[in-house]
Design a protein around this nucleic acid. Sequence first.
DNA 1: CGCGGCTTTGAGGAGCTTCAAAAGCGGTGG
DNA 2: CCACCGCTTTTGAAGCTCCTCAAAGCCGCG
Lengths: 250, 250
Amino acid sequence: MSKEKQASQAILRPAIPKLSSDETPCAACEVRQFAVCGALTPDELESFGGGMATISLSAGAPLIDEGEDDTHIYSITSGSLKCFKLLPDGRRQVTGFLFPGDFLGLTKSDTYINSVEAITNVTLCRMSRKDLNKYADSISNLDRRLHEMASEALADVQDQILMLGRKTSEERVATFLLSLSRRAGERGGPTNPVEIPMSRDDIGDFLGLTTETVSRTFSRLRKRELIGQDKERKTEILDFETLREISEGF
Amino acid sequence: MSKEKQASQAILRPAIPKLSSDETPCAACEVRQFAVCGALTPDELESFGGGMATISLSAGAPLIDEGEDDTHIYSITSGSLKCFKLLPDGRRQVTGFLFPGDFLGLTKSDTYINSVEAITNVTLCRMSRKDLNKYADSISNLDRRLHEMASEALADVQDQILMLGRKTSEERVATFLLSLSRRAGERGGPTNPVEIPMSRDDIGDFLGLTTETVSRTFSRLRKRELIGQDKERKTEILDFETLREISEGF
DNA sequence: CGCGGCTTTGAGGAGCTTCAAAAGCGGTGG
DNA sequence: CCACCGCTTTTGAAGCTCCTCAAAGCCGCG
């Protein structure tokens, strides 16, 4: 679940998703326990998996363009992606990152309200909304699980709003690092050397800062020995307590 | 639905909610068509209304403190409220405003994740989560309606994130005015002289700016004759088109 | 080894904030 | 009815954080 070295280059390769729709090994899925599917019994899962297609994307490949018809939902099985919105002059806001076990498609409207792009190589499961609705009728837990996830997402996003509206650059970066760490833990990975698959640019556009400010802030935290800058897009948190205090605005 | 002149002073009066739980005139409710309850049949509504208590709050009165046990949900029938989060040093982020027809309680966690306070005098309907769950089981549309509303809220909040992360003060204020106008229209009110019940402070804490910057920005828009500053917390939009362009970042 | 990408660091500048004070507005009481 | 008081809003001046522009460093890769 964590060998994303190819992450670095983000080359824009042709984004033709390789469909291999006849193999849906849901039962053996590594992220099932964390994903939507976690609410299903083996029987339900089997029929559910029938509607699933497996897709892989290379690092940098676009998955969704904001404004496209909202036809499918996705469950991430490996790798990471970013969701973002653009302003006409090119300013970009990364609204969130997706990791294994995450669900893409909680907000249903006519068209997608975010663009989505692979950061690393990615594999995901895809299902049409039509199929999803079919299953939602017959599988009682599914609907509730989706509602639950939407509710959680809504809570998380409030913290993001607080961060963007009121936190300093240092507080934002601290918040970001701790959040990456926590999420890695939630999906069963190590919480401490934090894997950071995304570029400084992506981080900046997520935190409402520029690349340079993000970089400077990392440097400052490093000089204060709150974090250690290991190689390979891993960052070690040296002082959780202080970082947490910073992130919470003390 | 719009005589909120007492709004201005925001005096902190004792916040004891006046319960009058035996009168629940849901059938005659002015906001029903816009609110959660809009999805119910008259029969369902009648039983549903049985669990409802009517509450009124004076301007400035707190309704919820972040961190309290999340025991009740609310539906606003008149007036306006603000939801906000605080940092330890007093920095405040207003995460949203609530108007008649809006629902409070889409995010279910153990404790409330926002504080909520009346801006004007307010009346609202309250129901315990326990009762809500009871009705959710027996009224099929209710669950779906809540899910729908959560999904919409999630979409709205993405625009807020884009705004906070990437827009200039002018773009934020323009976005804010247009959003107030649109929401007033959605609940059947006039879209043009925009009613602005909240203070400059509240607006600032919503837009991630200071009072002064908000005020200066209003002044600038006024000088450019994009808005007119009428009295009584009403602002007239003189040039929708340009304001929209500004708000969308052209 | 050298090229292209991302990241880091530096210097100067812009936008928003902070601090301060004046103006406006509503309510109260003489 | 007008003067005064408290509060909000507006306006001004100075300062700080973050941004912009620029260049050097670093790293993987051909």
